[in-house]
Computed example of a mutant assay.
Amino acid sequence: MALHTLPDAERTKRLTTDELRSHFLVDDLFQDGAVTFRFADLDRVVLAGAVPTGGSLDLGMPDELAADSFCERREVGILNIGRAGTVTVGDDSYYLGNRDLLYVGRGSGAISFASDTAGSPARFYVVSYPAHGAHPTTLVRKADAELEELGSAEQANRRDLFKYVRPGGVESAQLVMGITEIQEGSVWNTMPAHTHARRTEVYLYFDVPEGDVVFHMMGEPQEVRTVVVRDGEAVLSPGWSIHAGAGTRAYTFCWAMGGENQDFGDMQFVGMEDIR
């Protein structure tokens, strides 16, 4: 399991483009017929991509976690960003269409993945944090997620935010997870920007058309850096970093957070006059 060790804010100011990408960008996560893991020293988050193309795939148990099962001490969010498929947890199976999400609680059984059609596979995005308590495994259809409409056409940031795992909805130990869809004609997400002093975040960009990119902006508000992101790539965001972006056309991203609290509104907004 590849390990991402993140530099602090001071060192990040001096990184080259390649160094910035090697530390903060998670790429090659979705590989046909495989489960691919990444581990980051960012609230001990584990990311994985599972693309079943020739039968079912077991999530397995990476040696680095030193546990008897993946969910022994962890909770998991599984978002399907591909075609329809099934996630099996212990003896129970859950059918996930595109943009449906399954929350898997601490102490759950073995996890496996399957696609309805091998030639048009599901693409399961897995986010896992340590869990101090157990919560029920729950399937959330996109249609049942809490919707919040944000932005305006004048500011080119019209977007629909869908909250799947959050207090008052699907309960978890620390995971908060959902997706944001940028509307046609808009390009910006999360601008004006903010930071999270008590949480860290991961952005996975998907449904980015071939040939298009998203310019993800990160770093301290007065030391902004840019990471160019393509379809199926994620960016790790420490608590001191902004996380915003603009695409060459509309796109979607999954946001997942872990840390000290689960208050969605716990963020420190940055005025446009303070960004440089």
Score class of each variant (00 low, 15 high):
residue 266 D to A: 01
residue 81 I to E: 00
residue 161 L to F: 12
residue 140 V to M: 14
residue 179 I to T: 15
residue 262 Q to Y: 00
residue 118 A to F: 07
residue 170 V to Y: 05
residue 273 E to S: 15
residue 163 K to P: 02
residue 195 T to H: 01
residue 40 A to M: 12
residue 123 R to Q: 15
residue 83 R to C: 13
residue 274 D to K: 14
residue 123 R to W: 07
residue 248 T to C: 04
residue 33 G to I: 00
residue 228 V to K: 10
residue 121 P to S: 00
residue 149 E to K: 14
residue 26 V to Q: 10
residue 109 G to H: 10
residue 16 T to R: 05
residue 193 A to W: 09
residue 110 A to W: 11
residue 231 D to H: 13
residue 70 F to T: 09
residue 56 S to E: 14
residue 240 W to G: 07
residue 92 D to S: 13
residue 36 T to I: 10
residue 168 G to D: 05
residue 68 D to C: 06
residue 187 V to G: 14
residue 217 M to R: 13
residue 131 A to P: 04
residue 229 V to G: 09
residue 37 F to M: 11
residue 41 D to I: 04
residue 82 G to V: 04
residue 138 T to P: 03
residue 106 R to N: 07
residue 154 E to K: 15
residue 83 R to P: 03
residue 146 E to I: 13
residue 24 F to S: 07
residue 23 H to S: 09
residue 195 T to M: 07
residue 21 R to P: 05
residue 202 V to P: 00
residue 175 L to Q: 00
residue 225 R to I: 02
residue 61 M to D: 14
residue 55 G to H: 09
residue 203 Y to P: 00
residue 252 T to S: 11
residue 221 P to E: 05
residue 143 A to R: 09
residue 167 P to A: 04
residue 234 A to F: 01
residue 39 F to G: 04
residue 266 D to H: 04
residue 125 Y to G: 06
residue 41 D to T: 12
residue 28 D to W: 05
residue 65 L to N: 06
residue 226 T to H: 01
residue 115 S to E: 09
residue 192 P to L: 08
residue 119 G to D: 13
residue 133 G to Y: 10
residue 268 Q to E: 13
residue 52 P to W: 08
residue 258 G to L: 05
residue 41 D to Q: 03
residue 234 A to C: 01
residue 150 L to D: 05
residue 94 Y to C: 04
residue 42 L to M: 10
residue 200 T to Q: 15
residue 109 G to L: 11
residue 36 T to Y: 01
residue 31 Q to P: 02
residue 243 H to I: 03
residue 247 G to Y: 03
residue 125 Y to A: 14
residue 254 C to F: 05
residue 198 R to I: 00
residue 189 N to A: 14
residue 197 A to F: 14
residue 25 L to C: 03
residue 92 D to G: 06
residue 198 R to F: 11
residue 170 V to D: 06
residue 173 A to N: 09
residue 24 F to L: 15
residue 270 V to Y: 07
residue 83 R to M: 13
residue 162 F to G: 11
residue 201 E to Q: 10
residue 90 G to N: 00
residue 4 H to S: 13
residue 122 A to F: 02
residue 2 A to R: 15
residue 195 T to V: 10
residue 75 E to R: 12
residue 5 T to P: 03
residue 24 F to G: 12
residue 245 G to I: 02
residue 246 A to L: 08
residue 138 T to Y: 02
residue 219 G to D: 08
